[in-house]
């Protein structure tokens, strides 16, 4: 595919424009997806914490704690949730999902119900913890930990999909631009070839250029080709007609 020099700068311009659109769209997309998914995970976990808190009241007050454990075991099967623990109003652990036991970091930390807490648990990783009061804190609180790496992986996957799409659009756009520019440049190249033929004074039938095709075009290239042909014709006739006059004048 041959691109005329005339269009090379235009091509570079288009390329940089696409690059700028691609990068800026990616950056905005990464930021908004990260923000959106992180807050969505937190919101979902907070909703789950609230659901467990609401369901726990009756169990804690009236039933066996195995029912409470069974309840949280069902929720911890949800993707992204790494641990759940429930403490009572005296900060005693009533149920949890930790193996081989409740981490020291959690045992020693001060309870912050309602806030989002970031935790690094030795041997387990980084977690974002959300919580909800049970019966306004009079019965206790529910705490849910989300694995940051899982959330990050989900965000990376979502961003990856977006960037993948943007990259495809970028490359399709670039190739489409090259094709359109080449398409636009093709008659100019033909015109140039035709002008060279005229300049060399080659006969049309010896030329590889389909002169008829370029001369019949109904656009600027066609007009220019016909103009070149005219100038070429006029110049030769005038030369023949004007040479004796020149001699006579001399």
């Amino acid at each position: 595919m041959k691109i005329t020099r005339l269009f090379q700068r235009t091509m570079f311009g288009i390329f940089f424009l696409f690059l700028l659109i691609g990068v800026s769209t990616s950056v905005v997309s990464i930021y908004s997806v990260d923000l959106h998914l992180t807050s969505e995970y937190e919101e979902n976990s907070r909703d789950i914490a609230k659901t467990i808190a609401d369901a726990s009241v009756d169990i804690i007050l009236n039933r066996d704690l195995s029912s409470l454990q069974s309840l949280i075991d069902q929720f911890v099967e949800i993707q992204g949730i790494s641990y759940i623990y429930i403490v009572n109003d005296t900060d005693e652990y009533l149920a949890h999902t930790f193996v081989p036991g409740i981490p020291e970091e959690i045992l020693e930390s001060e309870r912050q119900v309602g806030e989002t807490v970031t935790r690094n648990l030795a041997g387990m990783g980084d977690f974002v913890e959300v919580s909800s009061y049970i019966l306004a804190g009079h019965v206790g609180s529910v705490h849910i930990g989300m694995d940051v790496s899982h959330v990050a992986l989900a965000i990376q996957q979502a961003i990856g999909n977006q960037i993948y799409l943007i990259a495809i659009i970028f490359f399709v756009g670039i190739f489409a631009s090259i094709w359109f520019v080449s398409f636009a440049a093709k008659p100019i190249n033909s015109l140039l070839d035709y002008a060279v033929i005229l300049a060399k004074g080659e006969r049309q039938e010896d030329s590889k250029i389909p002169n008829e095709q370029i001369l019949t075009r109904n656009d600027e290239v066609g007009h220019l080709a016909r103009l070149f042909q005219y100038f070429s014709t006029v110049t030769d006739t005038e030369k023949l007609e004007k040479e004796p006059e020149v001699k006579e004048t001399k």
Binding site: D64, L65, S66, L68, Q69, S70, D73, A95, T97
Partner: peptide, 11 residues
């Protein structure tokens, strides 16, 4: 056991 059975005995 970290489940309802373990919690039942724990309780």
């Amino acid at each position: 056991q970290a489940d309802a059975y373990g919690r039942s005995g724990w309780a």
